[in-house]
Simulated assay, not measured.
Amino acid sequence: MCGRYSLSKSKIELEERFQAEMLGNFQPRYNIAPTQLVPVITSDSPKGFSFFYWGITPDFAKNKPVSQKFINAKAETIDQKASFKSSFKSRRCLIPADGFYEWKKVGKKTKIPYRFTVGEEETFAFAGIWEEYENESGKIKHTFLILTTEPNSLVSDIHDRMPVILDKENEKKWLDKYASESDLLNMLKTYPVDLMHSYTVSQQVNQIKNDNPTLIKKTSPMDQFGNYTLFG
């Protein structure tokens, strides 16, 4: 599962990295959570950033609990499940990020937050699918899901799933409407462990309302939990 991630780069940095235009303003994000409106790049508009809701929109969420099935989709069955098959075929997207969070359970009620990054804090893209629908008031809404796969050894110590991180050379192919299904499925693999890093971060990340640069800074477990230094 991937339930929280960061995108701490500026608008200019994102436009340069993905060679896509972003209309309007964008402020770096350090604690992106489900139901929030965030930038993606879609197969319908690969030269520009669109802003979609992650998983479910706030008005839809009022009547339904946020759960894994609304924010992630398993890469292993993406071409088989009726609920995702159509989106996989024609509505794919890149989800820009520069890190994601997972929590390691160390006691009955205690979890330590970890941040996972690629290379030297590089910007990368999750593989995603998107959907369009009309809400009760007749407005068109757009949502996206992050695809997940089996974890590498770095992530597996914390969680049994990890987001699909696309190789940079596959990003344009993922958006290509004429790409073959077999080629697309081959892209949905576990990211190499030797290209990733992880470290503990502040407990402040637990609260969605917190969204500031301190959240992505390395923090010793001792600073958060006192006697839990052995887990660092």
Rank of each mutant, 00 (worst) to 15 (best):
A97Y: 06
K64T: 10
I56P: 04
I158N: 10
A33D: 09
Q224R: 08
E134Y: 08
Y191C: 06
D59C: 07
K177L: 15
S83C: 13
W174M: 07
F100Y: 15
V106Q: 11
S43G: 05
V201L: 01
K209G: 01
K168S: 13
L7Y: 12
K81R: 13
T149G: 09
S43H: 04
E21G: 00
D176E: 08
T35G: 09
I208H: 02
R17I: 00
D176C: 05
L14Y: 09
A73T: 13
E131D: 15
T200Y: 05
T35Q: 12
R4V: 06
L215T: 00
P28A: 00
N212F: 09
Q204G: 14
M1K: 12
C2S: 10
E76F: 01
A179W: 00
G48I: 00
D223T: 11
V40D: 01
K47R: 02
K139I: 00
T35C: 07
P96Y: 03
K69V: 07
T229Q: 14
G48H: 04
L188K: 03
V205Y: 03
E102Q: 12
D194C: 04
N170I: 05
S182Y: 01
P113H: 08
F126A: 11
D223H: 12
W130C: 13
P39L: 11
E136R: 10
E16T: 05
M162A: 10
G48F: 00
L188F: 03
N31V: 07
M1P: 13
R4S: 12
N206H: 08
F225R: 05
E120Q: 15
D59A: 12
K64Y: 10
D98A: 02
M1V: 11
I165K: 03
